[in-house]
């Protein structure tokens, strides 16, 4: 016996096992949830009595719409799941490297084409992106590197003064900044700024099919988008690295003067005895970092799908991947330079 309302709100109070006979003559309100309950009950053998015609109609609509239950997926053993997942991740990572090398190849090919047909090259775009990724990054790079120099001088002085070797703080700062920190931290800042900007700008163009439109006009996205952007990075990153080197040394010199009383002329004299190879080692890494950041950023943009969600996902992924790749490349460079003895 059911009466009153049989709706979704009263559904939880019904017995899960329906009675064999259900009297519905007292029912005045029924919705699809109620109709579904009755249809299920009828299916499992219950007899419905006193069903009103308008309720019967609704029940019929619902009964025809009840979907076939989903097939139960076969149970996969746990170790197999882990194995599958590891394998899939590995293949994904390999696929990522493959795609990155494809984009590197396309960038180089576009570069060669630009040399052979200079008229196709977008100089305006290159200048614009040099301004965006280079000039506009100067304040943050300078400040960051200056502070790193300050920190190194301060910490170095604290440790070295215990051995009476304060003057070696100059060597410490110079080698650390010129060889490693200057360019590495600059590359990380630029990876954060520019890889995200590249992915976001190219990705939103991809989302609105602008890149497809470009192709229909016979314009090559590698030539129009990739080449100027990555080339701008290759040009500006070494310059930014040089600025970072100078800023780091200035910061170190200022701090050495304040805490250790090493005057700037003394700092310079000591500095001039440092091997110039450290600067060469440091700055020679810059173009490689630039290509890594640029290619990862552009590739991320091109992989954006049609929804805004993938744009956000790819942008943050680009930044993380670019920073990670720069650090890995730096480690490989350290091994390389120590092997060739620089």
């Amino acid at each position: 016996m059911l009466d009153g309302a049989l709706v979704v709100w009263t559904l939880p109070h019904l017995p899960t096992e329906a009675a064999p006979r259900i009297d519905l003559s007292g029912l005045d309100k029924m919705d699809t949830a109620g109709a579904w309950y009755l249809a299920e009950a009828q299916h499992s053998g219950a007899r419905l009595e006193g069903l009103k015609p308008n309720h019967a109609q609704l029940m019929e609509t619902v009964a025809t719409a009840i979907p076939e239950p989903d097939p139960v997926p076969p149970v996969v053993p746990h170790w197999k799941q882990i194995l599958t997942r590891t394998g899939m991740r590995t293949m994904q990572a390999l696929g990522y490297f493959k795609e990155l090398s494809e984009y590197l190849g396309r960038f180089l090919a576009a570069g060669i084409r630009a040399i052979r047909h200079p008229s196709q090259f977008r100089l305006t775009s290159l200048v614009y992106h040099c301004q965006e990724t280079g000039v506009r990054a100067i304040p943050i790079v300078f400040t960051m590197s200056f502070l790193i120099g300050v920190v190194l001088a301060f910490q170095g002085a604290a440790q070295l003064s215990r051995f009476g070797a304060e003057v070696f703080v100059v060597d410490l700062i110079a080698i650390a900044v010129l060889r490693e920190l200057g360019i590495l931290l600059t590359a990380i800042v630029v990876a954060g700024r520019t890889a995200s900007a590249l992915t976001a700008s190219i990705g939103s163009m991809k989302m609105r099919e602008e890149i497809d439109a470009m192709r229909t006009f016979g314009m090559d996205p590698d030539m129009v988008l990739t080449l100027p952007r990555v080339l701008a990075l290759v040009i500006t990153l070494p310059i930014l690295g040089l600025i970072a080197d100078v800023a780091g040394l200035v910061g170190g010199a200022v701090m050495s003067w304040i805490t250790l009383g090493i005057s700037p002329p003394m700092f310079l004299t000591r500095l001039s005895e440092i091997d110039v190879s450290h600067v060469i080692v440091g700055l020679s890494k810059a173009p490689f970092f630039a290509v890594i950041i640029g290619i990862i950023g552009v590739h991320g943009g091109m992989r954006v799908g049609k929804d805004a969600e993938s744009l956000g996902q790819m942008t943050s992924k680009s930044v993380v991947n670019a920073i990670f790749a720069v650090i890995i490349a730096d480690a490989l460079f350290s091994v390389f330079f120590s092997v060739i003895g620089l």
């Binding site: 979704v8 559904l11 939880p12 109070h13 699809t32 579904w36 719409a65 009840i66 979907p67």
Partner: peptide, 23 residues
């Protein structure tokens, strides 16, 4: 929206949702 219904079991909710999708 079905989560607003108090005491509605997970399975019932899923099957009701499936019914609406098919409707």
């Amino acid at each position: 929206p079905l989560r607003a219904v108090p005491h509605l079991g997970d399975e019932d909710r899923e099957r009701l949702a499936g019914l609406k999708v098919s409707m």
